[in-house]
Structures are given as C-alpha cells and as structure tokens.
Amino acid sequence: MKRLISGMRLGVCALAAAVAMQAAAELPSNIRVVIGSKSTGGDTYQSSSIVAEALSEKLGVNFKVDATGAPAAFKAVERSRSSDGSTIMVFHDQAYLGVLYGQKGYDDPFANYSIGPTFAINPGNAYLVSKKSPYSSVEQIIDAAGNGETVRVAIQPGGVSEIGYSALKNAVKLKYPGKEGNLTPVNTGSQDSKNQAMFDGLADVINGSVQSNEQYTRLPADDQKAMSFVWLTAREQTIAQANEDGMGKTTRADLLKFVAPNVQVPMAEGQDFTFDKEFFFLYNKDIDPAFVEAIDKALGEIYAEGKIQEMQKKSFFIPNFKPAAEARTYLKEKNDRIADVINAIKG
C-alpha cells in the first residue's frame, strides 16, 4: 500500500512537472529581471526577489534579478527588443515620476514601454521631524511655512522622495497662497544623508521610511538621533492591510495615526493627498501579448494561492496584484493626478 501511495505521489509530481514544462515552453528558460535600483538592500530588490522566486516556482523558469539601476535597466529592456520577454524590468512609481520631474535618463514609460502587472506596495514612505523639533505635526509645519518661517525638508530630488514634499508645498499654497516658497528642499541623496542633515541641524523635516526610521522613533528624546513620524503618505486602506504588528515595535494602529484622514495634506478642496509606492513590471514595446498574458495568468494563480501575500506582509509590503491592462490604466491615472500637483506648485 505504501509503495502504491508513493508511486501515485511520483506520478502526480511528474504530471505537475510536465504541465509546468508545457506552460513554460512558450517562455524563455532564463528571464533576466533588471530593476530600477542599484541597491540589493532596498525595497525594489526585496519585492522583486519575492515575486521572481514565486514566478520561478510557478513557471519552472529561472528568473534572475539584477540590480542595475534605472538608466541601465531601461537600456537593457530597450536593447533586448525581442518579443520573448527574456529581459524585463521591475520598478516603482519613480519610472514616471522621473519624467514628471524632468530627470535625465528617464523615458515616458507609458509611451515607450509596455506596462506590466503591479504586484506590491511599499507603504512606508514617511516624513519625520526630530524629537526636539518645534513641530510635531504636518499641520504645524504647514502653518509655520504659511506664517513666514522657513521650513527645510531633506529629500532626494526627482522622484518618490520629492512627491510628498511637492504635496506639502501645494498644501501651503492652498492655505497660504504665495507662502509656499517658505518650504524649501534640502537636496540630499541616500537615507543616511537625510538622517545626517537632521542630526546636523540642516533640515527640519526629512523624508524617510517606516522600515529605515522606525527604530529612530523609539529612541529617548534626549538622544540626538531621536525622531518622530509626522506623516505617512500611504492611503489609510493600504496601511490597514499591513500585519497587526506593524513594523518593529510600532503597531499597525500606531502607523494609522500618521495617514489621512488623521494627517491632512490638502490637495484640492475636500481632497487629501496620498501616495502609495507601487511596484510593477515593465516590458519592451514589442513584447509578445502571449508573454504578457502568461505572466498575468501566473501571477493571478500565485495570488489566488495566497502564500506570496504572507511573505510580502512579513517584509512589510502590501500585496497589490493588478493584471497588465488594469495596471496601465490605473498607473496612467495616478501619473496624471500627480502631474497636477507638480504643475500646481510650478505655476
């Protein structure tokens, strides 16, 4: 009987492998996933690795993530203009924000590339102040700028890090027209430079993330490094999907105190600005629709199984699968909404 059962098991495994092989027959055996970040310690690499691992398992194809950085990644996808999808890209909203902010090395992703499915959100984009700061809320920051105080915000210009700053500036303009110039950017680079700008007293507010800065928020107030969150740009429903434990020792309930509507950054009359950092695939323009469909289908099944969600949430990502066509429409709308905010402060 035991032999029979193990024989049946082997048979089922062989059948499953054969089915997987058949599905994989239309795909290249190796798929290179270039990402828009050079860091293997950052959220892009982490989220890409999770989804690449799941796709490898599902399709029996080897997905290899390479942290090439944005310009090289765009070029790699462009260079391999074959339709088979042997080189594909993963990036986040920076792909179009780079264009909106006029960054060098960015092409309009909606016009020049094919937008693939979304698969995760990093809900951690945050703004922080020192625990010794006179400001303890976004409202105070907006009012201070409106009343003539210069408020310096440390950001990395030209993308995700800047978008919250642009929204804050827009909020100052809405409440105190003509005073938005009092909110000034301090252009830094990596997270450590932003933190350092605060330690050196060069910035009053810094852009950061829940993942990088949470431990700093638990330091005692007399520590030079101690910080407090004042705003998380994510939507309330996004944070609400995080694990109850939140991040570190800051629970989901604690995090919810820093998102709209508890923290209000007005974007227009009766509308608050929110921003989720969403990860998605990018393919070259000539991609075979069958490839797009195969990835959509595989991801659909992976998300239906529900295992990947646990893994993503464990790493403080919010599962966010939208098939390619839906993702394109959704991201284009998001692009247009953000373009309005950027244009408003330009004018």
Partner: peptide, 15 residues
C-alpha cells in the same frame, strides 16, 4: 549585506 537582513524581514537600526 543589508539585503540579507531585509530579505529576512529584519530591521537594522539604532536598536
């Protein structure tokens, strides 16, 4: 190296 921590969902910081 920091990637090894983040891939395991472990936070590095002052604490």
């Amino acid at each position: 190296l920091i990637g090894a921590f983040t891939l395991q969902g472990l936070q590095v910081g002052p604490l």
